[in-house]
Amino acid sequence: MALLEVKNLGITFGGLHAVDGFSMSIEKGELYGLIGPNGAGKTTCFNLLTGVYKPTMGTIYLDGENITGKSTIDINKAGIARTFQNIRLFSNLSVIDNVKAGLTNNYRYSTATGVFRLPKFFKTEKLMNEKAHELLKVFGLDEESSTMAANLPYGKQRKLEIARALATDPKLLLLDEPAAGMNPNETAELMNTIRFVRDEFDMTVLLIEHDMSLVSGICERLSVLNFGQLLCQGKTSDVLSDPEVITAYLGE
């Protein structure tokens, strides 16, 4: 069975069908791409998947569990983590604290344990530090663990966001334009990182991207959205050579 099963998903804002009857299914361990021209409804689709918007129609199943209409918090607990198109870090926290914030729900001790510094606090914090450093190392950020997140260069902020999402131990990782604003070298490095994450953490990745080199480089399958509707779906090479897709991107 597919890890993510989206059926006939849709949302309307007033009379506007931002996403209309969108379906897709992503297998476990897949690198899946969601592309389309500006305003096609890609980010809206992400917001539906993560519960920021409540869908007006359709269903979403994650690993057999119906998560349609659940809150963002519950959907994260069910196993979907995301990054944002415009970076949303905890900018006044250090790099490592950003990741440790992501670990909050998986490494538990009570507030009282923290305030009174009971033994469990030290034990759990040690485990959290180890896990956080392990994640930071994957993204080459462990040297800067005590830097304030706001002071990181742009490319590293994007990576830190992915690290923080991974800290919540998700089944499915949603990346919203991970290569936006990166130069070709950084993009190539990011592609390797995403592949590494998939292999190392046994992760399923769904990403929105405009950078075709990244899309054709790492995505195994694609869905193309245009005006909120599914235009085309299938293997990357087939989709990218589809005349309809080319028309949607380049015009008649």
Partner: peptide, 26 residues
């Protein structure tokens, strides 16, 4: 002790970015 604990970190995360804090399940 509160600030430098799991709870304090979560609270400061919410302060810095509420939407991101929700997205990591806080």
């Amino acid at each position: 002790n509160f600030i430098n604990s799991r709870t304090g970190r979560a609270v400061m995360s919410i302060r810095d970015n509420r939407i991101a804090a929700e997205s990591i399940g806080l």
